[in-house]
């Protein structure tokens, strides 16, 4: 194990169902790994310190702020981003609900909210309004006041 130079780390990771082999610098965030190395810019940067949730992705089914994960850490793991939500059959119900409920204004927070909300609905198909508000507290939106976002998540839940 060499630790003297900030050498790159070889990782194999599944991103939106697709396997990727990558060489990532040890210090590179998962956010930059996605955006800069793979070109998946749907995951957004808002703060780089875990406070806005714009960079939310799912790692092995748990939502995380990808700015506070190193790319090297996802070796052998499954990463899901907003780009993986829709299928050839169409949008994910959450994406559809966000459109119908006008749950985005500028839209910069939207990928993070969608991935976070999916993390909730995948485990709890019919959360209460309070539960939704609690679950989404790690995602900041400055445009909407959250009202329509919460309604969209309610609409997409069963």
């Amino acid at each position: 194990m060499t630790t003297n130079s900030p050498s790159k780390v070889h990782i194999t990771t599944t991103i939106n169902g697709q396997q990727h082999e990558l060489l990532v610098p040890g210090y590179m965030s998962l956010l930059d790994t996605l955006r800069e190395l793979i070109g998946l810019t749907g995951t957004k940067e808002g703060c780089l310190d875990g406070n806005c949730g714009a960079c939310t992705v799912s790692v092995d089914g748990r939502i995380v702020d990808s700015c506070l994960v190193l790319g090297a850490e996802v070796d052998g793991k499954e990463v899901d981003t907003v780009e993986g939500m829709a299928s050839p059959d169409g949008l994910h119900p959450l994406q559809q609900a966000f459109l119908e409920e006008a749950a985005l204004q500028c839209g910069i927070c939207t990928p993070g909210f969608l991935v976070a909300a999916k993390g909730l609905l995948d485990n709890e198909p019919s959360p209460s309004e309070d539960r939704i508000r609690h679950w989404l507290a790690g995602n900041l939106c400055r445009c909407t006041g959250y009202d329509k976002i919460v309604r969209a998540v309610q609409k997409a839940s069963s």
């Binding site: 748990r62 939502i63 995380v64 702020d65 506070l68 994960v69 976070a116 679950w135 790690g138 995602n139």
Partner: peptide
């Protein structure tokens, strides 16, 4: 501690 994303880690 933090929100759900933070608590995952």
């Amino acid at each position: 501690i933090g929100g759900i994303q933070i608590q995952s880690r």
